[in-house]
Amino acid sequence: MLDDRARMEAAKKEKVEQILAEFQLQEEDLKKVMRRMQKEMDRGLRLETHEEASVKMLPTYVRSTPEGSEVGDFLSLDLGGTNFRVMLVKVGEGEEGQWSVKTKHQMYSIPEDAMTGTAEMLFDYISECISDFLDKHQMKHKKLPLGFTFSFPVRHEDIDKGILLNWTKGFKASGAEGNNVVGLLRDAIKRRGDFEMDVVAMVNDTVATMISCYYEDHQCEVGMIVGTGCNACYMEEMQNVELVEGDEGRMCVNTEWGAFGDSGELDEFLLEYDRLVDESSANPGQQLYEKLIGGKYMGELVRLVLLRLVDENLLFHGEASEQLRTRGAFETRFVSQVESDTGDRKQIYNILSTLGLRPSTTDCDIVRRACESVSTRAAHMCSAGLAGVINRMRESRSEDVMRITVGVDGSVYKLHPSFKERFHASVRRLTPSCEITFIESEEGSGRGAALVSAVACKKACMLGQ
């Protein structure tokens, strides 16, 4: 009897593995994704193909990295998701002549009506938060230079001027797309009239992360975010950046690689679950690469896999709870928690219980395998993109072996128990001629924006502006 049951459990697990095998990517698959990513990057950089390229390769006008001589107080704003952060950054000489960066910050959550109302409502709310922060720190009387981390696709015309191309991540505030974001912020500050600010720089969160990590390690020339969304930036040779005049030196390019796949480059790798996630998203047909990796989508992918296993009578005796059938019910943090389970399955059992399920031991094991399959594919897909960037940098610099540091931020990278190990191992397999160091950014977005502002202020002083 026991043997029969054991055989049935083994057969069930084997069927589960057959279904989950769809998520496995072979090294040849990853090399294919990497080569296609490089081709799209090239198209994004070139003037004649930029418009139709899915990977936009947006110039950021960040050319210099901090040298350690900029000092002063800077205000930093960070808008990239449902939370908005205001930070005071003091850049100065530390002990023994070292450079020191001290920060104080406060988080504000953005109400739904500000995210989806008008641009005026959104930026009025942001300036209200700045006003509140300055009151708390008794700094209303000071006109501070301000660095703005704005983590949406922007076409820069200068370091302090950028046109919002399109909202992502659930934002829909009308009247912002096609307009200068810094102008919208300046107008809102003017409307309030109770404080003055000098907006000197606007950067993407990947750029802010790279600059913040450069402060720790001067070989950091790539910034990457794996959180709600997924994106990367890197220092490109100016001669390859056709959208900006000049051939000397390097400029940081914001790849906006989340949109890779929007022209069909990933079609052969998309599964039924991916198509369902895409169809029910706020932007169907867009940001397809990001939807395979980002935390906004990972939990939902797992939920759809679990429903398939229920329908195949391989999980929960073929019956799903009402909660499990509800879109968004299986949160991405559950994926991390399930994979963090120590082996007694308590954590998995508790999560499934909150979803109205009474799982068996085998159910718990199957749910864990589903989570591992989805998150491992995410790590491997992400590795193909980064390997594409790094191999490109090595080739354009004609280096036999390139040493490089990548600064990384984002909740999936930082909080998932195995993502970074799987990701690092896969990147290294795909970049055999590179020695890569990964560092995690601390308060990256805010500190990085302030350091970019410090560079901009120093330049302005040198130019006598």
Rank of each mutant, 00 (worst) to 15 (best):
M393T: 14
S174L: 04
V207F: 01
K39S: 05
D124R: 03
D187K: 00
I189N: 04
L144Y: 10
C457E: 11
S212G: 13
R428F: 13
K56C: 14
E93A: 09
M107L: 09
K90V: 03
I366H: 06
F150L: 14
E17L: 14
L324V: 08
K142T: 08
A232E: 04
V55L: 13
V226Q: 05
A53E: 04
E421M: 13
T361S: 09
Q38C: 10
S131N: 14
K136R: 08
D409E: 08
S109H: 05
K459V: 12
R428G: 10
H137S: 08
G464D: 14
G285M: 13
V86M: 03
L2G: 12
R308G: 04
K56S: 14
A449C: 13
Y413F: 10
V89A: 02
I159K: 08
G294I: 06
M57Q: 06
E290V: 12
Q286R: 14
K346W: 08
E70F: 07
K102D: 05
M197T: 06
E51K: 15
A379C: 10
V427P: 00
G117L: 09
C129F: 05
S445G: 12
R327F: 14
R36E: 01
E96G: 09
L184N: 14
S280K: 08
Y125D: 13
E339V: 01
R369T: 06
G80L: 14
Y108N: 14
W99E: 04
D267T: 14
G81L: 15
L307F: 03
E312Y: 14
R397C: 13
E242D: 02
S360E: 06
L270A: 03
T405W: 01
L134M: 10
S321M: 08
N313Q: 10
G464C: 12
A259F: 09
A320K: 15
T65F: 07
E331K: 13
V154P: 11
A456C: 11
T118F: 14
Y297V: 15
M34N: 06
G170V: 13
A379L: 09
R358E: 06
R403G: 09
K39R: 05
G92I: 07
I126F: 08
P145D: 00
V338Y: 01
D267H: 04
G299C: 05
T149D: 07
P111V: 11
D158G: 10
D217E: 05
G229V: 12
